[in-house]
């Protein structure tokens, strides 16, 4: 579905990604894990068109993403929930969701999708007229995900959905991610909480200083001593 091939990305003269390649197949949950500054977020930003690689290629559903601008990429069905949630803090919950449906042409079917989102996140329905900025961190994360779902993505890209959340919320968010995936949306997940991420993912890639150092089945990686030592606090 998504194929990233040997991308090199620079911030000015500093190279952030060094020849990263990976792929996401339809129906999977794939996770990228790694330490701070390894290049996880940069990878996602490059995929969704917010940054451009110097060399390499990215294709989504057989199309070259490097030729599309960010808004076109969303229309193609790749929706990015950015790091730190970034909801529209001065707009109401409903207005936030309406923004999520911005690229939708089939306005007649929107009603059903609002219902799906409210079914998945009942808290949002309770707070439909509340200003986004006054929600709690977990609710904001739900809003950001609900907003992304309104675009009916084929591939949902999540950047650190657990960041700054209480443990209870983290497990709730992860079970929701699993549900979304079961309902037919492919998920690409970036996480620092490697334990959680590996527990729901099918496959995983480990990024270290701009390179993919390990990859494979999520369960196997979670069991491997190398990963346990570096990311899971094990011995």
């Amino acid at each position: 579905m998504l194929k990233v091939d040997e991308i090199n990305v620079f911030y000015g003269t500093i190279q952030a990604l060094r020849g990263i390649s990976f792929e996401v197949n339809e129906g999977e949950i794939v996770t990228l894990i790694g330490a701070n500054g390894a290049g996880k977020t940069t990878t996602l930003r490059t995929i969704s068109g917010l940054m451009r690689p110097k060399t390499g290629s990215i294709s989504f559903l057989g199309q070259n993403l490097l030729k599309c601008d960010a808004s076109r990429i969303v229309e193609m069905g790749l929706c990015h929930v950015p790091e730190g949630r970034r909801i529209f803090a001065n707009l109401t919950v409903m207005e936030n969701l309406e923004m999520g449906a911005y690229t939708r042409k089939d306005t007649k079917n929107l009603k059903a999708d609002y219902d799906i989102v409210f079914h998945r996140f009942p808290r949002l329905k309770e707070r439909i007229k509340q200003i986004g900025g006054t929600l709690s961190g977990g609710e904001q994360q739900m809003l950001a995900m609900g907003r992304a779902l309104m675009a009916r993505p084929k591939l949902l890209v999540l950047d650190e959905p657990s960041m700054g959340l209480a443990p209870l919320f983290v497990s709730e968010i992860f079970s929701i991610i699993k549900d979304i995936n079961k309902a037919g949306t492919t998920v690409l997940l970036v996480e620092q909480n490697a334990n959680m991420a590996l527990s729901i993912a099918n496959r995983a890639y480990v990024i270290e200083t701009g390179r993919i150092s390990l990859s494979g089945d999520a369960k196997e990686l979670a069991a491997s001593s190398e990963v346990r030592k570096a990311y899971l606090g094990g011995k």
Binding site: V81, Y102, R147, A148
Partner: peptide
């Protein structure tokens, strides 16, 4: 309005 609120978020919503 979404640009005023957060231009990165609105880009990721597909706003040009």
């Amino acid at each position: 309005i979404s640009i005023r609120e957060d231009d990165i978020a609105s880009t990721s919503m597909g706003v040009n």
